[in-house]
């Protein structure tokens, strides 16, 4: 029991230390940029998993929530000349608000309708981003001020690590609180949750709003790191990528998404010139995980870890 508790704290800190040391060994270059893109997807996967893996609602417009955050922050920063460090609040608030309203509208209904409506919303966000040229500059892209006046990727990397760690800690604390218990009850068996008197709609809306706000937060980083926003950030293709990463990582694990993003994303970089093949690989992995290994990488790693620990303890 004691070892269990200690390893629960030591392991994440160890991983964090490894992340922090990465640029020391690899410096600023191609590898670090890949690392940043993978982490963006991984952290988004974590936010997605908070809804998908716990209350079992698939937010099939997740990239749109990231896009909404990114565009809100970008538009406010460019129009009013406000520092991007302050627009982070706008990004989180707008994405969270849109998520809250969508949740209010759909989470009383059967889960598939929330997925459907999130998808509709994403389609609309995408066509708005293309057609509302006065606001978003359409397909030619919105140029956004950078967070830092430096050509180096290293500070951005550290900001992202901080952001990711912050999101992980907040989401884990929520999962381990009474809210988390309610979320799991709702996700596992709705009828039982009704019988035990859980106001499931309320908890689902809370969960959904937080998850969308996380997407907005990552969107803020995305906007001011890449410094250009095109309607493609809200595309369903992006949602599919995040969703696949989250489920391959293992639903209900949070950290699984980051692991799978760091493994799968760099490998698929080789297929960058042929985007179709990339998505075909995602599709196959999604189907395989769905049908044959629903626990994903997280349950595989847990299995390896616990059998290794048992071996050590029994010696």
């Amino acid at each position: 029991m004691n070892i269990e508790n200690k390893s629960n704290i030591i392991l994440p800190l160890l991983v964090l230390a490894l992340f922090l040391l990465f640029p020391v060994f690899y410096g600023d270059g191609y590898l670090l940029r890949i690392m940043i893109t993978s982490l963006i997807i991984g952290i988004l996967g974590m936010g997605f998993d908070f809804t998908g893996g716990f209350i079992n609602i698939v937010n099939f417009g997740y990239a749109a929530f990231m896009g909404i955050g990114a565009y809100s922050s970008g538009i406010i920063a460019t129009r009013f000349g406000i520092s991007p460090w302050l627009t982070v609040f706008a990004a989180v608030a707008v994405s969270g608000l849109v998520g809250f309203l969508l949740g209010l509208l759909t989470l009383r209904l059967r889960g598939i309708f929330a997925a459907c409506m999130a998808w509709f919303l994403a389609l609309v966000a995408h066509s708005l981003a293309i057609n509302w040229v006065g606001l978003t500059r359409g397909s030619s892209g919105l140029i956004v001020p950078s967070l830092l006046r430096t050509p180096s990727n290293v500070p951005f990397y550290y900001i992202l690590i901080g952001l990711g760690f912050f999101i992980y800690v907040v989401l884990s604390l929520l999962i381990n609180s009474q809210y988390g218990t309610a979320f799991s009850v709702i996700g596992q068996d709705l009828e039982a949750s009704h019988a035990s008197g859980v106001n499931s709609t309320k908890y689902k809306i809370i969960n959904f709003t937080i998850s969308c706000a996380v997407a907005g937060l990552v969107g803020w980083f995305y906007a001011h790191y890449f410094r250009i926003l095109t309607p493609d950030v809200t595309h369903t293709r992006q949602t599919v990528e995040i969703l696949a990463i989250a489920y391959i990582g293992g639903r209900g694990s949070l950290w699984g998404s980051v692991i799978s993003a760091l493994i799968v994303f760099p490998l698929l970089e080789y297929l960058r010139p042929v985007p179709e093949l990339r998505l075909i690989v995602y599709g196959f992995m999604l189907i395989l995980v769905m049908v044959y290994y629903p626990g994903g990488m997280a349950s595989l790693l847990k299995f390896v870890y616990s059998s290794a620990k048992n071996k050590v303890l029994s010696q």
Partner: peptide
């Protein structure tokens, strides 16, 4: 049983991605 609909949704999504991109390929 409680996860069937969402699992199916994700499965059909995988099928959709594969068919779409295979056609494009």
């Amino acid at each position: 049983p409680g996860r069937w609909i969402m699992n199916c949704f994700l499965l059909t999504l995988g099928i959709s991605i594969i068919l779409q991109n295979t056609a494009q390929y």
